[in-house]
Design a protein around this nucleic acid. Sequence first.
DNA 1: ACCGAGGTACGATTCAAGTCGTACCTACGG
DNA 2: CCGTAGGTACGACTTGAATCGTACCTCGGT
Lengths: 107, 107
Amino acid sequence: MPETSAVPGDELDLGTVLRALADPHRRAVVIELAADRTDGERACHSFNLPVSKQTRTHHFRTLCDAGLLCEVDYGNKKGVRLRRAAIDRRFPGLLDLLAAEFTRSAR
Amino acid sequence: MPETSAVPGDELDLGTVLRALADPHRRAVVIELAADRTDGERACHSFNLPVSKQTRTHHFRTLCDAGLLCEVDYGNKKGVRLRRAAIDRRFPGLLDLLAAEFTRSAR
DNA sequence: ACCGAGGTACGATTCAAGTCGTACCTACGG
DNA sequence: CCGTAGGTACGACTTGAATCGTACCTCGGT
């Protein structure tokens, strides 16, 4: 199984994306972002992830490498934004699916 | 992360499904089935998986546990069928997404 | 100038998952 | 009736991934 590493530049790879979404914490982040139709920038620390800082860094790194997020570095803190356009173009329906999961979890 | 184990009886769990689809071999199986709109029964050994028999058993077991497939045991050999209705009901758009990946890989 | 909060780097640990070897079972065909 | 092919059970090995400890960096506020 070659399963070449992600190329966030242009092409999203399904395997990489699914592996990224397979983790509950990362999935929670993407689901939250997918549910917010304003697509505002969010601070990394604003997600309520029950893990240490280092692990959080690791997860956001993974999500960016998969091409699902883009980051803005302010030196001090960091912001993330969902790459909705790219994802919708490559995987139409995926974000709707995840957003639906947000509604579901709220119930 | 509780991430309770799958209950194939009724409810499909997103985490379990994504973890099942994260593996290239399992994903290949589901993609092939999703692309075939006739939804015919397929023999397990008819998929060209480059792994041993034991591993193949393991993968099909995982897919069934995730609720993506149902199996028919003929004693001698085994058939699988995509649980399209259940998947479409719980995750509308998911199978279309995977079927699109089949077309893509053919190119 | 200092301190605290957010973030990263590197290394170590731990655990899940994919994989296969060996052994055994079940049918079907000659 | 036996061989062969598909499948399962159990156990062992290996790798990848999640996690955290320690140390260090970058700002903003006081």
